[in-house]
Write a protein that binds this DNA or RNA. Structure first.
Lengths: 251, 251
DNA sequence: GTGCTATGTTTGGTACGACCATACACCATA
DNA sequence: TATGGTGTATGGTCGTACCAAACATAGCAC
């Protein structure tokens, strides 16, 4: 986390008076307060200069920072577009660093393992507390799976959709955003996974089993089926870059 | 060098050839490859100008971007310090946006709820697969709690330590980083929570119960105790900013 | 010799001005 | 009216200059 180490000699000599920070803060405030609506465009840089009484250097630095935080979108020759921060923004910001972390073998494994943990509790939650509405969504997804067994690309989409339902059930916007993040980050590696109607059928059966267990209000079975499902998928992905020590063990 | 052959009507008209990006990528590579070790300092800006044959404007923009990604640390009048990215870096990057999201009431609630979900699966995992070593850590923590019942500040620390153990058990570095993030983001709000030796004792008992259930290899009870524990804590925090609709219901 | 101070150098932060390429609005011509 | 050329606004880049703080060094006092 942020290094908050005060220098041993005194309290806070830092208080970095970077001029751009003031602009960043000001724009941030305008965004969260709604003065700058989502989708609105920022004034031209030369106008911001006057507005904040700063040089273009500083204004541009502020824009760079805000872009890095995902608060504005900055295409080369267009005005910056305001993007009101949400949970998806949060994951967006992580994307660049995540890409670096995923380049190491253990990175992908760790990320996938975390997904397994999350989905384990999500299926348990579903089995325990899913409402009629959720069950309906959860029922529709596997049937769509079944219809696209022969089209691996389509199956991949409906496969993802099934898991997406799990992330919606808690009603917490963090989870759908998290699912989106897993999807984006894992997708490049899943692309390389061999697919076949037979393999799709196995996955479909897993989804059906999980769905059945949820309908039965049986969290233990639901979790067990999910773990089997995800571990099996991992084995397929692992085969595309097989190395020792990437195997998920059950401890 | 830049591709100018994309179809003008479709696809990606962007292909932004921002000069700073090249520097960013280059430095990123040097960091992950180890050419730039963690803790090393970047060359002076005027040296980087020559090295990349770019203007200082561009060099400084690259540094700003890298700082935003948490890959370098940039104090006002010092050389930028290289920080090899890890999972904690990941959470660091989210900090600024998270701060904005937490300013909305539902932000805190959503974040805390996600923590409950995560810890639910963590205690289940602990009850199922914790090794002797983990159990030992888990045993030590509550006893430290007990010793600091009368010192609320100390108790808060040991309280956090107990939960930290849960995040260590899976052996996945993502979880300790996540715990650190929860700690930092939730801390300001927990600060405002009223504390007392009696309240500390209640929390201690919860920890003891969770610990006992884990030792008994009883994930259901462990989860139940944890949920009670965390929901109870939430009620105390909620009291500091009471508004309707922030109550956590069990659906 | 040791320790402190004054001074010059390095370096990041900021400002200003200039130029380029392109998106876009505008206008003139067919 | 449709089309194509033109001018302007705007972001991207460059170069220079200046300031203030950090750092290195030399010089001074003891």
């Amino acid at each position: 986390m942020k290094t908050e180490n005060d220098t041993p000699s005194s309290a806070l000599p830092s208080a970095s008076p970077r001029a751009a920070d003031a602009i960043v803060r000001s724009v941030e405030l305008q965004i969260v307060s709604g003065d700058l609506a989502d989708g609105a465009t920022l004034p031209a840089e030369r106008d911001l200069m006057q507005q904040f009484n700063a040089s273009r250097t500083v204004v541009r630095e502020a824009i760079t920072v805000l872009t890095g935080r995902g608060l504005i979108e900055n295409r080369p020759r267009y005005r910056p577009i305001v993007r009101k921060p949400g949970y998806n923004t949060l994951l967006d910001v992580m994307a660049d660093v995540t890409r670096l972390l995923l380049e190491e073998q253990s990175g992908l494994k760790n990320l996938y393992e975390s997904r397994v943990f999350v989905e384990r509790i999500l299926v348990r939650e579903a089995a325990t507390n899913a409402r009629k509405n959720d069950i309906a969504n959860l029922t529709a997804a596997p049937s769509l799976n079944k219809q696209s067994l022969d089209d691996s690309a389509a199956f991949y989409r409906t496969d993802t959709d099934f898991h997406a339902v799990l992330y919606q059930i808690p009603g917490n916007p963090i989870f759908p955003a998290l699912h989106e993040a897993y999807k984006v980050w894992l997708h490049p590696h899943w692309e390389k996974m061999p697919r076949s109607p037979e393999r799709n059928y196995v996955n479909y059966c897993s989804h059906a089993s999980i769905h059945a267990a949820i309908v039965d209000r049986d969290p233990d079975t639901a979790e067990k089926e999910l773990v089997n499902h995800l571990n099996s998928a991992w084995e397929y992905v692992r085969a595309t870059f097989d190395t020792p020590s990437t195997k998920i063990t059950s401890r």
